[in-house]
Design a protein around this nucleic acid. Sequence first.
DNA 1: TGTACATCAGTGAACGCGCGTTCACTGATGTAC
DNA 2: TGTACATCAGTGAACGCGCGTTCACTGATGTAC
Lengths: 205, 205
Amino acid sequence: MPKRGYHHGNLKQALIDAALELIELRGPTGFTLSEAAKQAGVTPAAVYRHFEGREDLIAEGAMQGYEIFADLMEFAYKSGQPSALKAFEATGRAYLAFARKYPGHYIAMFESGISVNRTPELASVAHRANGVLEQAADDLSQHIPADKRPPASMFSAHIWALSHGVVELFARNSPGRASPFPPEELLESGIGIYLRGLGLVDPDG
Amino acid sequence: MPKRGYHHGNLKQALIDAALELIELRGPTGFTLSEAAKQAGVTPAAVYRHFEGREDLIAEGAMQGYEIFADLMEFAYKSGQPSALKAFEATGRAYLAFARKYPGHYIAMFESGISVNRTPELASVAHRANGVLEQAADDLSQHIPADKRPPASMFSAHIWALSHGVVELFARNSPGRASPFPPEELLESGIGIYLRGLGLVDPDG
DNA sequence: TGTACATCAGTGAACGCGCGTTCACTGATGTAC
DNA sequence: TGTACATCAGTGAACGCGCGTTCACTGATGTAC
């Protein structure tokens, strides 16, 4: 157990963690700085020792999310190598796994309205994360005859949209909207059909 | 011009319209009853003559959205008949068109946290809307050999997720996240590849 | 080892604000005769 | 057509609340000598 007393010791991270939990719970606009401070056991004013304000706190959470996200995507990508197909499918699974394991981060990143260009650091790490998916799509599209090959960025946008849609509609417990299938299965099968459409997997697979 | 004076004449609808505009502008949790009242030129207290409160106002907006949505989807479905394929593609286009034309309604319906089971009327109209997409998917899946035919509900969930993802990521002007392609093109091409994967369109189409 | 002092990370009170909701009220409208 | 009256749809003041942010402050920590 860390030391307790007048000085918290690790307040900055404690505030970010609290914020992410609350964002998950109450949504990006429902989150309040005061509640995060309270949850960290500290006065609202103390937050200003570590952050410029409310927005800055959210942005820090998003930034940490992008870092975890990029690491996970890179790991997944590498784990599927040297097969371009396996690498691609692994990144798709990693996307959903991230959204389910780190919902607060996910919301801060994609639903909070924080601009990815808020700071150069944030832009850079977001770019790294998105780059993995595009790389995986690019590798894979090499296996398609050049004349009927869609741009890799379109390819990755399709998969990103499908993944995001599955997360938002079926992986979150939207009140009153029951998922017809487990989200993992839905995403896996959707990507499978899509890849078949591109001629990248066996029609009978 | 409608009569002006002490009595508004059409306050209920004016409040709903104001609410939907504000929801589009500030997000579902950022929306306030007071601001909607102000925008309709009326005291906040007047809202309570027509709605039970803040939530009820949002729910009414969502309900009207589902009605428009269901009508549009039905019209699109019929416009593609008797070709199951054309009908299906038309519903996909209608989905995106709705999201772009009625963003406030869309957000109230899918992002506000309002449960679809809030009232029987809301549940009913939501069911009607979703039913069209499922019907279109079901028609289409009749053209797939029964032994390799995915359940129609999975089929429609895939398309719904893809559409929703395109809307959220690329049709909304997410700050700092530029769309690589026009959303319409992205959705159309994505659905095309998906249908090819199901063996429903010509591989060289 | 002990002391003086600078630095740091918190407190707590205060601010102005807008929120959702309630209440008794009043002005406008519509209907009965 | 004119008048009395019930109904209806607004007002405006008030409530208690929590918000983000600021400020002067103080207690704890760490360092120089």
